[in-house]
Design a protein around this nucleic acid. Structure first.
Length: 254
DNA sequence: ATATTCCCCTGGAAGC
DNA sequence: TGCTTCCAGGGGAATA
């Protein structure tokens, strides 16, 4: 999927074309030009777009520029280079490019529900956290949101996906939606040097319950948050709230 | 087919 | 102070 921006290919495909639509699917951005060609972009962790006068000097992290009319350029900047933009051909109006085939449900749209998750998780031994981060299952649930949603749903991230009950999937689906909506409202999470289009930090980071909170007290019960690695990613969870561990209470009898 | 590991890239944080 | 090492992330490729 990832590919470097090729200016020659971009000019060959896009010269003289008009941008007719800008769409999103999962975390991908599709810029449609006259329906048959366009550009595919993913911001990765640190990518951003801006439109400015072509005579302005490029920034240190500018990776691609596309000439627009009125002396302006669409410029793509990306510090970490995890993101990209490149020209593609499109299958036609209203159709997604083949590069995006195989993506799972949009978490904020119909179709993402307990029944869907339950059926997709059948027999799967994959830990539930990895499962909900699987693009082929549901898109847009990154590491932060997977951690937070599992905490909110009180589910152990290590459990096999196939073992979750319908009631648990219902709770988890609801918490994934709530977590994403809340974050979108807050303008994102601003991990490290990420910024929104206007350069401000997202405020969601301030409402994180477990992500990045290693050894800090759980906001619900005070137990120390634990961290493990799953699929090369950090997982944070409350061993009390999410694992059903009972704290032994000793009481005096007379 | 499913599961796990590694890699990309960079700058900020932590360690020496 | 300055240098080195480690780490984070989305997503895909390679490996088991």
């Amino acid at each position: 999927m990832r590919r470097d921006f090729d200016p020659v290919e971009a000019e060959r495909l896009l010269k003289g074309k008009k941008i007719t639509a800008v769409k999103r699917r999962a975390k991908y951005i599709v810029i449609e030009c006259d329906t048959s060609v366009g550009m595919l972009s993913h911001l990765g962790m640190t990518g951003s777009f801006r439109v400015e006068k072509a005579q302005l000097p490029y920034g240190k992290y500018d990776r691609a520029a596309v000439c627009l009319d009125k002396g302006e350029e669409l410029r793509y900047a990306d510090v970490r280079r995890f993101g990209y933009i490149y020209p593609i051909t499109l299958p036609g109006q209203g159709l997604w490019p083949e590069e995006l085939a195989g993506l799972g449900q949009e978490p904020l749209e119909k179709g993402f529900n307990a029944a869907y998750l339950l059926s997709r998780a059948q027999q799967r031994k994959t830990p539930v956290k990895i499962f909900i981060m699987d693009q082929a299952v549901v898109v847009g649930v990154g590491n932060i949101y997977a951690n937070e949603a599992l905490f909110a749903a009180k589910i152990d991230p290590r459990r096999a996906a196939g073992d979750l009950t319908a009631a648990e999937w219902k709770a988890l689906a609801a918490e994934i939606r709530k977590t994403l909506r809340k974050s979108i409202r807050a303008g994102g999470s601003s991990i490290r040097n990420y910024r929104t289009v206007d350069g401000s930090e997202g405020a969601f980071q301030r409402s994180l319950n477990v992500y990045g909170k290693k050894a800090e007290p759980c906001p619900a019960c005070g137990t120390k948050i634990e961290t493990i690695r799953q699929g090369g990613r950090s997982t944070f969870f409350c061993p009390q709230c999410q694992c059903g561990k009972k704290v032994m209470k000793i009481r005096k009898t007379t």
